[in-house]
Amino acid sequence: MKSNIVRLTPQQESPPEESTAVIPESASNAASTATRATKSVEKIPASTTRNYALWRASGTTLIKNIFLPVLTFLVVGVIWSYIHSHIAPEIPSIADTWTRAKEILADPLAQNGPNDMGIGWQVLYSLGRVLGGFALAAIVGIPVGFVMGMSENFQKAVQPLIQILRPVSPLAWLPIGLLLFKAVNPSAIFVIFITSIWPMIMNTAAGVKAIPKDYMNVAAVLRLGKLEITRKILLPATLPHVITGMRLSLSIAWMVIVAAEMLTGGIGIGFYVWDEWNNLNVPSIIVAIFIIGIVGIILESVMTLVHRHFDYSR
């Protein structure tokens, strides 16, 4: 009974930032918790009122999760239309943008030569660069973070350098990349590498430091060797922090790639935006902005799922 109550509370309060797609799942969870509760209580009138209350609660969250965001979009739409009609007629109307969106999305994987590829390809090329730089940063940054968390001397040695480099916009590294690699594609990946590495190092190091002393005492009593401590205690205990670092760096990397590609050119969503600007094709730019946002949400949700999977405290 006690455990039922404990379980019921976190599921009922679905956090406000949760996307609408989660509603049916959380509602059914709440319902199944309710049936479990009913079984153990065995008081019919009480449970009916509770079910009713749950039904009402899920009803209001449904309204809150759909109605309120739609309202915001409506307000933005009104402001957009006003800007189009009264302030800056160069900004396309919602209708024009919608027409363009349908054109763009009709054949996202079209291939009419290197200068005319569908939006899907543009996104995929950008994603490829992001994932490349991100993976390289993980390979380098996570071990560095580990050593930093474990060795105070190493931390003392590298901390000042990291503190100087971390606030620098990763785009400032683009010329260095071009100089080093003599090609735009590796340079863009290099920029993403620089973007992603700082959060990974910092979060991994923080994770190693946050390991409770008790775990190390357990390791000491068990006389675990260095390798065993790393494999059985350090790695699993730090994993949630490592994933937090990866999550942060992935969302920043997705922002940075757009800017980097504007400079490097080639196929990619960033250069697509720049190219359409050169063609004064503003509706395409607005469509691209929405697509970039949606891809960002998808990346974020994937990382959230991964993070949730490794969150032991739940």
């Binding site: 008790d214 775990y215 006389r223």
Partner: peptide
């Protein structure tokens, strides 16, 4: 030095959560 011949039950259990 610590060792399993002197096993400790810690105040806050110290179970490994994973």
């Amino acid at each position: 030095a610590p060792g399993p011949d002197r096993a400790v039950v810690f105040q806050n259990h110290s179970l490994l959560p994973w």
